[in-house]
């Protein structure tokens, strides 16, 4: 049974106002338990609006959203969803507010009504997961940390609630390459070791191609492609899609194919592209 089921979902901002905007239009999507779902789309394609439906922050205008078997159009169920679905917003470091890292990370567990021992265990566990030493960092005020560290603390704050489903909105935006790899590895590990269902929004196709089991592509509030990375690359011509940049190795492969070279354009991973180019070079040198 899917953890997240979206059926024909529509959502409009400011209905009736001059700024009216249909953010989502007939989106149908499902995410299985333990799966890594990537959502890709340009700015304003409705990605953030879609994932806010996943933990009950928004109520569907049309269609249905069913999370862990619960229909989110019922307000009471919507208000309970935060316990199951952890949502990491864009630039989550901006929501830190407590005086120390420990207090901030334990905010979620405290709201869950856990005992002090359990809170301590979960908080320290979450800090370790994001690669921070609880002993050295727990008592520091969040303000004195760097942006990248604060981002990790904020993510730990969501992990400490041990959600069944973790939804992340562009978790790597504005990070340096090292910080980005760290976060991406963390997310993959959560899926593989803790069996957490992951939904990750990004406009970097490259990140999702290597990490996600399935990818959904949004364009102007509509779902235009969905499937495994290879299927999605096959279904949708990303070169023509504005706002999303193909990974450089795929651009190269497509450019080669465009020049009439015999290369397999149905690949998705960097290693496959390497093999293709290697093969092609050998072919040319052999002649």
């Amino acid at each position: 049974m899917p953890v997240i089921e979206v059926k024909d979902l529509s959502y409009t901002y400011c209905p009736g106002a001059p700024y009216e905007k249909k953010a989502l239009d007939g989106v149908t999507l499902s995410v299985k338990r333990g799966e890594f779902m990537g959502i890709v789309g340009a700015n304003g394609s409705g990605k953030s609006t879609l994932i806010q439906h996943f933990n009950g922050l928004l109520c569907p205008d049309g269609g249905k959203v069913i999370i862990c078997g619960q229909d989110t159009s019922v307000k009471q169920r919507r208000d309970e969803l935060w316990k199951k679905v952890g949502l990491v917003f864009q630039y989550p470091e901006q929501q830190l507010f407590e005086a120390t890292v420990f207090e901030d990370v334990s905010y979620g567990p405290r709201n869950l009504g856990l005992g002090p021992r359990e809170i301590r265990i979960r908080t320290e566990d979450a800090l370790k997961k994001v690669g921070l030493e609880p002993e050295s960092i727990a008592d520091l005020p969040p303000i004195c940390l760097s942006g990248g560290l604060r981002r990790r603390v904020a993510i730990a704050g969501v992990l400490a609630m041990q959600p069944e489903v973790l939804v992340l909105d562009e978790p790597t935006a504005g990070l340096d390459p090292l910080g980005r790899d760290m976060i991406l590895n963390l997310i993959k590990k959560l899926q593989q070791e803790d069996r957490t269902t992951i939904v990750m929004v990004s406009h970097s196709l490259r990140e999702l191609l290597t990490l996600a089991d399935r990818i959904a592509v949004l364009e102007n509030g509509k779902l235009v492609a969905t499937g495994s990375p290879k299927e999605v690359l096959h279904q949708k011509d990303f070169l023509a899609l504005p706002g999303i940049i193909m990974p450089d190795y795929l651009q190269l492969i497509h450019a080669l194919a465009g020049r009439g070279k015999k290369v397999n354009t149905g690949i998705s991973a960097m290693a496959e592209a390497e093999l293709e180019i290697d093969r092609l070079l050998k072919e040319i040198c052999g002649k």
Binding site: W82, L87, F97, L112
Partner: peptide
């Protein structure tokens, strides 16, 4: 508000103190 609500801040709790604490989680940042 949304971010803190998804971490369990209760903005419509019957207790005034809980509500004020939740507001602080928004006002400080």
């Amino acid at each position: 508000t949304r971010a803190q609500r998804s971490r369990g801040a209760q903005f419509n709790s019957p207790s005034v103190i809980v509500r004020i604490k939740s507001m602080a989680a928004v006002l400080i940042p």
